[in-house]
Amino acid sequence: MRFSFFLSEAFGSMRRNWVMAMAAVITVFISTAILGAVLVTRDNLNQGATSLKNRVMIEVFIKDSATPQQTQALERKIQGMNDIKSYKYISKDEALRRFRERFGERIVANLPINPLPASYEIQVKDADRVDSVAQQFFDNPVVDNDPGTHNGVKYAKETVRKMLGTISLIEKGMWVTTGIFAAAAVLLISTTVRLSIFARRREVEIMRLVGATNWFIRWPFVLEGFITGLVGAMLAAAFVWVGNWGIANWIQSSQIDFLSLRVFRMWWQGGSWPLGLMPTLTILGALLGAVGSLVALRRYLKT
């Protein structure tokens, strides 16, 4: 069979039925753009969640009475732990310097001694493990606990728990949304294709009468669907890509520094896109168009 003939048939029919072709392109564009937007949002949220998880920190305060040997022993213990990504020793002087930086010279100026304890700041590999890591310091004699408590070990226990819960909820919600929109996209596209083929069923009937094989009839339609899907999906991919970076840039460069925006900045950093999503969306759109044509043609090609 002659490919160039099918291609020129496909383009010819798109030129003649350009209103229908436009409708199909727009349908593919809208549905893949929505799908892409959902995927990109999910991607950004995931990245935000990861960066939040990475900020989970445990602070272990050390008694002033601890000997250097005891402190070193504690450090070796920290080094030996598997779940730890990094740790940093904050000396009493460093702690005071930070305090001064944060609250101003005046409060510190009149202090006769440095009341701040030295500490270790520990970052955990996995936010889920923060509890079990922290617990390992609870009963250490070097840790500056008030009698009967574990307040020498500080970490955002409740916050972490809630955060993890929220993240998993958001992820689930996003999966559901993705599923719904993907289904909607398939339905919209197949309806559009069916309409355009219904409008041309007479053509199909004539083709069959002059002895065209089913595949001879199908090819131009399939190519047409493929091209339509390709164009719509490429537009959608470009749209989503520009939108994604636009939002990310706007948020990162924005001078406004409301708390909400700062939180948002963490959430929307641009995601790991566009390398994976762009071709996926495009191929998806093109396949949707082609398969949509095949399915819609089926009822007119029964012999």
């Binding site: 009468l209 002059v210 002895g211 065209a212 001879f216």
Partner: peptide, 15 residues
């Protein structure tokens, strides 16, 4: 389709 290629067809509505 091969059968139909060996039969020419003319209709009232031209098709």
């Amino acid at each position: 389709p091969l059968l139909r290629r060996n039969i020419g067809c003319v209709f009232q509505d031209f098709k």
